[in-house]
Design a protein around this nucleic acid. Structure first.
Lengths: 266, 266
DNA sequence: GTTGACCCTCCCCTTACGTCAGGCTTGAGG
DNA sequence: CCTCAAGCCTGACGTAAGGGGAGGGTCAAC
């Protein structure tokens, strides 16, 4: 008589719905139907189902399974090799992702030694963007400056952070004033603000020679997540990131020109 | 003024449709709309998009990304750990799959040393089921009997296979006759057929003592793919696999009882 | 004759968009 | 001022592999 859908489903470990699906897809149609339309599967159908499930476990799409089974296995081998190649690619991709996640966890764990509550209290609107921090870590983790900055950041107490953020807020206010007053980005006022930013970084994180500062400026202009660490979205204006970047570049050139004042070596 | 969809799409490396999708999904709505309904994205929107893409690269589902970004990153960390765990699981799973594919390729490569055409010519309707062969390999590859059988199979020439399959066909015809004539499975005729099957295996593949033959019988009854190697679907009848299995068991018991005739040691 | 378990066929839902279709808007050139 | 191409809009359907449910038929047992 053959097996009913329920029986087949039970001992093949699939659902009835799946069998219906394979039937409609033409992948596995039962050899027999009762007058009432009930499906009845033969042993040959079961053999075919086992094959289907085997290839399905290897993540073959159903239509490819259909091809493999239709063909008198002319080249199941070819499909298998192809599949194995793609499996290896996927494994490599996932391993990269796991590495990124690892770094993200690492950066969060070692970046700022505050509880979430303290963090919210100190940083307020400034969001510590994990995605940006992680990409930065992946990009810069081999640089000595980055490592020093991270180490010092982690050593900061809550009071350090509060003071640091207060300084930053004051600086930000002056920046906005200068920008809104249309002070030129390469003018003295803007350059002085850039210089104060440089000293701020030097004091709290890592020495920041002109070339380093230029790289930071480029990142600020290119990646809005970086700029959001400096000026929260609510205070941003169109063109402000480019303005800051330009000011930093101008200041760096100014300092390049007069190498004598080197507070890096007091 | 902000950036249009096209601009954002171009330099974020996504399609316009994706931005529409994120908008409708409430994941990223542009800060501004022109009177005509055109979307305009601010720098803050861009920062958010970057975050979205970061998490998307880690294969986060969009609704989970929405949660992470909605929350003032209360615990992006928690989500990341969870994701990393699942990534590792998935990697392990794919590695198992790659191993299975490897074995499938191996079994196909070393099982039968014939070209596809020859194979078709010799085996005809009997399909050499790769999925079953692979599972068998994974199950038994450590057994000496399996390894010997595979080695001898591989050494068979086309002529060997042809002769072997002719013997099998003759045997099959007698089996069907016995079954259709309602000869009892534990009767002398059926047991003799079982014994001939045993000798066939012994001659062409590997010595087959009663216990080994019993295991084979159980597999024939349990897995229709195994039975299909013995009797092609077109010649099968309901209950035939169980019949063969029972006959083999009966024959094994008979031989257990009379240990003296051991043609295994001539 | 009636219950309860099983079966049937639609049909909508899921993810993260791709792919039109049909119709506005906008900026540049004539 | 008109036109044309490029760019934008909304809306709707399709994808893979089924999940879930509605509404209704079938079957064996009591």
């Amino acid at each position: 008589m053959g097996y009913s859908v329920g029986q087949v489903a039970a001992f093949a470990g699939v659902t009835v719905r799946t069998l219906h699906h394979y039937d409609k897809a033409g992948l596995l149609s039962p050899g027999e139907r009762s007058p009432a339309g009930y499906r009845f599967y033969s042993d040959a159908d079961l053999a075919r189902l086992q094959q289907i499930l085997f290839y399905r476990e290897l993540d073959f799409p159903l239509d490819e399974i259909a091809v493999i089974l239709r063909d008198p296995q002319a080249d199941a081998l070819h499909h298998l090799r192809e599949r194995q190649r793609r499996l290896r690619e996927e494994i490599a991709r996932l391993e990269r992702l796991a590495e990124v996640a690892e770094q993200a966890i690492e950066v969060q764990r070692t970046g700022v030694a505050l509880t979430p509550e303290e963090r919210f209290e100190v940083f307020g609107e400034i969001s510590f963007d994990l995605s940006y921090a992680t990409e930065a870590q992946l990009k810069w983790r081999d640089s000595a400056a980055y490592r020093e900055a991270m180490a010092r950041a982690r050593a900061h107490t809550k009071e350090d952070w509060r003071q640091l953020m207060n300084e930053a807020a004051a600086w930000r206010a002056e920046l906005l004033a200068a920008f809104d007053a249309d002070q030129p980005a390469d003018g003295g006022l803007a350059m002085d603000l850039a210089e104060r930013h440089r000293r701020h970084l030097t004091r709290w994180f890592t020495p920041c020679p002109p070339d380093t500062h230029r790289r930071i400026a480029d990142d600020l202009a290119a990646d809005p997540r970086a700029f959001a660490l400096l000026v929260p979205p609510s205070q941003q204006r169109p063109g402000l990131a480019a303005y800051v970047s330009k000011a930093i570049h101008a200041n760096a050139s100014r300092r390049d020109g007069s190498r004598t004042d080197s507070e890096e070596h007091p």
